[in-house]
Design a binder for these strands. Structure first.
Length: 561
RNA sequence: GCGCCCGUAGCUCAGGUGGAUAGAGCAUCGGCCUUCUAAGCCGAGGGUCGCAGGUUCGAGUCCUGCCGGGCGCACCA
């Protein structure tokens, strides 16, 4: 699983450490120092062992150094540094060989397998079908989509799922809102119901109903009948809008799972029976409660209200049981910040249903504010005017919108800077990465070489002597590890940070050739084949990284002039 | 009041699960255009990592307590 250079090093280190008297259970750790003067890898083994061996750390380090077989591990140089670190500098050949491996892996570079792949369900967006998707949904969509991809890239099987709350009271409210707009349209006095939906789209729904169903027919209906029809139509149309928005935002759901199905299939009743049998529910004040407090929630929660209707919590429990019974090993729910209060109760419900505690994982997406000219673009759902996801990505482009949502950690509230998003210079991190890729495409064009045909022997690669080249080769080889780490942390932002860093190194390398033409990638000389292979390896890594993020990989960046 | 999240450069934020001298972009200042695309490049200044303790050889990172901000605390969804 670990990249090649590290494995051989760790093996040898493990052996050397045993030789100096480390206990059997001791595992030496290997890290990559930030500072390149500290070598390619470093270990703190001596620092950790010094306590257990009762010997100064630097002495332990020196003994490990003596025991270490450099030849076997592809190490050029070892030094004892600071309080007792061992710094390893690998032979350059290790990195040049790594470049050839990248070329060979090509589209698979960055992907890894798992001994036992898991079936993972990533549920995200899950917007109520009562209005268009807005920017916060967009952030959840981008992050959920890439978290799902990260599972795929690291060897799990993933289902992308959207939970449709098509059964609750908010649907009735939407229907009543459409009815009110309909009344107004035909010249009647009508007011939106209490808590109704005020958005402009409600008027559009009413108009569309008139257009498609015919005014005569609608007017001829009993109001109750008409409201039911409006409800059905509104849900259908709003959902179609959601699917279209997501599609255009390059988010492709495998499944839209409907809440209403939980009722018709009797899954809700099944849950109630199960809980009743386990004596986990009780009645009080006319309502039916679940003993979530027993499982770590702050208090018990109502499942059935005293008027006999169900709370949202009950179908949600059934839904998670449904996920489990469909064979998933892990359910990752991506929720908006306004739902974080539900994490405790949902997690408490799992053991009540005898589901493993780690079956459910919740990623909370914090709020997004959109700023233009340094000022916040207001979005107020109550006033019915908000920035829809579609409007946002139509203005910035899908690449930019996705990237901006992805580059920040989910748990920090972010501001979406429209000015930066619309900036087409390399100040915009998306372009910085895409541009680095496009530049190298252009280099290959200049070299009259198809990128797939880049070839170099190890001897030719050894002609790469510049520090920038070594640095790039080194950082490219981190990619699989970065993907693994990001997957583990459920943090697409780590991939963004990595790609920006690589793009920065690459752009600097490229620009060395502006000042000194002999340093150009296509400049004639013994280093040319190696440079082209390095360029190819960069292309592959950036391309795969962008693909992972669902961002396009342009061959060229056309500039307007 | 309770819970979750956040607090890192003037601003927006990274910081690879505890390492060595804390990074990027924007903004500011200085230099560079007949380029393998200068919508760019090179460089400079700018930090008590909210505060106080603790664990550790070693803390922006882990623990505790405060302070500040956001969100949530329904028989709403």
């Amino acid at each position: 699983m670990k990249p090649e250079p590290a494995t051989t090093l760790v093996d040898e280190l493990r052996r050397a450490v045993r030789e100096v008297g480390a206990p059997e259970d001791f595992e030496p750790g290997l890290e990559r120092p930030r500072d390149t003067s500290h070598g390619d890898y470093a270990t703190n083994a001596a620092l950790v062992l010094s306590g257990r061996l009762g010997e100064p750390a630097r002495d332990v380090a020196n003994r490990i150094l003596q025991a270490f077989d450099k030849e076997a591990a592809g190490v050029m140089e070892i030094e004892v540094a600071g309080p007792g670190f061992l710094n390893f500098r690998l032979r350059d050949a290790v990195y040049w060989r790594g470049l050839l491996r990248i070329l060979k892996a090509d589209h698979a570079y960055g992907r890894s397998a798992r001994d036992r792949p898991r079936a993972v369900n990533v549920e995200f967006v899950s917007a109520n079908p009562t209005g268009p998707l807005h920017v916060a949904h967009g952030r959840g969509a981008a992050i959920g989509d890439v978290v799902a991809s990260l599972f795929e890239w690291t060897g799990d099987a993933v289902t992308r799922e959207f939970y449709v709350n098509d059964a609750g009271r908010q649907i009735d409210l939407l229907a009543a809102s459409v009815e009110a707009r309909f009344q107004q349209r035909v010249g009647e006095e009508a007011e939106l119901p209490e808590g109704g939906y005020m958005g402009e789209y409600v008027r559009e729904l009413a108009d569309r109903a008139i257009q498609e169903e015919g005014l005569e027919r609608l007017l001829g209906m009993e109001p109750e009948e008409r409201v039911v029809l409006f409800g059905k139509l509104a849900i259908r149309w709003v959902r179609e809008g959601h699917e279209r928005d997501l599609d255009d935002f390059r988010v492709h759901m495998d499944l839209f799972r409907e809440e209403s199905g939980l009722y018709t299939r009797g899954e809700i009743e099944g849950v109630l029976e199960r809980l009743r049998a386990g004596e986990l529910i009780y009645e009080e004040g006319g309502a039916t409660w679940l003993r979530t407090a027993r499982f770590g929630d702050e208090k018990d929660r109502v499942l059935i209200k005293s008027d006999g209707s169900y709370t949202y919590f009950l179908p949600d429990i059934a839904y998670h049981l449904d996920k489990r019974s469909r064979g998933f090993d892990l359910a990752v729910d991506v929720w908006g910040a306004d739902h974080h209060g539900h994490v405790g109760r949902m997690k408490a419900a799992l053991p009540a249903l005898e589901l493993p505690e780690d079956f459910l994982e919740v990623v909370i997406i914090q709020l997004v504010t959109v700023t233009r000219g340094g000022k916040e673009v207001r979005m107020s759902k109550r006033a019915g005017q908000f920035v829809t996801l579609r409007k946002l990505f139509e203005e910035t482009g899908v690449d930019v919108a996705r990237y901006f949502f992805l580059m920040r950690r989910a748990e920090v509230p972010m501001s979406f800077d429209l000015d930066l998003a619309l900036d087409t210079s390399e100040a915009n991190p998306v372009y910085k990465i895409q541009y680095a890729h496009a530049r190298l495409c252009s280099v290959f064009e200049r070299a009259s070489l198809r990128p797939e045909e880049a070839r170099a022997t190890e001897e030719e690669l050894a002609e790469l002597r510049r520090e920038s080249e070594r640095e790039i080769a080194k950082s490219l080889q981190r990619f699989p590890d970065v993907v693994l780490g990001a997957a583990q942390a459920r943090a697409p932002s780590q991939v963004c940070a990595y790609l920006e860093r690589v793009a920065g190194l690459v752009n600097a390398w490229y620009h060395e050739g502006n000042l000194d033409p002999s340093l150009r990638i296509i400049a004639d000389g013994p280093a040319r084949p190696g440079r082209l292979v390095l360029a190819r390896a960069v292309q592959i890594t950036l391309r795969n990284g962008l693909r992972l993020l669902g961002i396009s990989v342009p061959q060229r960046m056309d500039r307007e002039e």
